Computed example of a mutant assay.
Amino acid sequence: MRILIVEDEPGISNFLKQGLEEESYVVDVHEDGNAGLKSALTGTYDLLLLDWMLPGLSGIEICQAFREKHTETPIIFLTAKDTVDETILGLKSGANDYIKKPFHFEELLQRIKVQFRNTARDEKEFKIGDITLNTGNHKVFKGSEEISLTQKEFALLEYLMRHKGHVCERTQIIKDVWDIHFEYNTGVIDVYINAIRKKLQLNETNYIETIRGIGYILNETQEKIK
Rank of each mutant, 00 (worst) to 15 (best):
R162C: 03
K100P: 10
F105Y: 13
D8F: 01
F141N: 10
T119Y: 01
N206H: 06
A35H: 02
L20N: 11
I99K: 09
I214E: 14
T205I: 14
L108V: 01
K226D: 15
P10C: 13
V140I: 05
D190Y: 02
R111K: 06
G165D: 10
I99H: 06
T132G: 01
D122H: 11
I208S: 02
T44P: 00
A80F: 03
E72T: 15
E153W: 09
E61V: 00
A35T: 08
Y216C: 06
K198R: 14
Y207H: 11
A95S: 08
L48Y: 01
A95T: 11
E22P: 00
L157A: 04
L49P: 04
E223T: 09
P102Y: 05
F77E: 10
P74W: 15
E21G: 10
T44D: 15
N219H: 09
G94I: 06
V84D: 10
Q115N: 08
I211T: 06
S144D: 13
K81I: 09
I189M: 04
E22G: 01
L89M: 15
N203Y: 04
L109Q: 12
S39R: 03
T135R: 14
Q222A: 13
P55M: 06
E220V: 06
D85W: 07
Y184Q: 02
T205V: 11
N96D: 13
L200T: 00
V26E: 07
L133P: 03
V191Q: 14
Q201K: 13
I88C: 06
K139L: 14
T132Q: 08
K101A: 03
V188S: 05
N194E: 15
I147K: 11
G213D: 01
K124A: 07
C63R: 01
K113F: 05
M1C: 08
L89F: 09
R197T: 05
Q151D: 12
R170P: 00
I99C: 03
E23I: 14
L41K: 03
L89P: 03
D46N: 15
I131G: 02
E204S: 05
N219C: 05
D82T: 04
E7Y: 07
E223Q: 14
D46L: 11
L78R: 07
I193R: 03
I88M: 06
L54R: 02
T87H: 06
I208R: 00
K113P: 08
I131C: 01
S144R: 08
T205N: 13
S13K: 07
K81N: 08
L108F: 05
G187E: 05
G36S: 08
G165F: 04
L108T: 02
N185D: 12
N137T: 14
G136H: 10
I173Q: 00
R162T: 12
C168T: 02
L54H: 05
T119P: 02
F66V: 04
H30V: 03
E107I: 12
Q115W: 09
E86W: 06
E123N: 15
K199H: 13
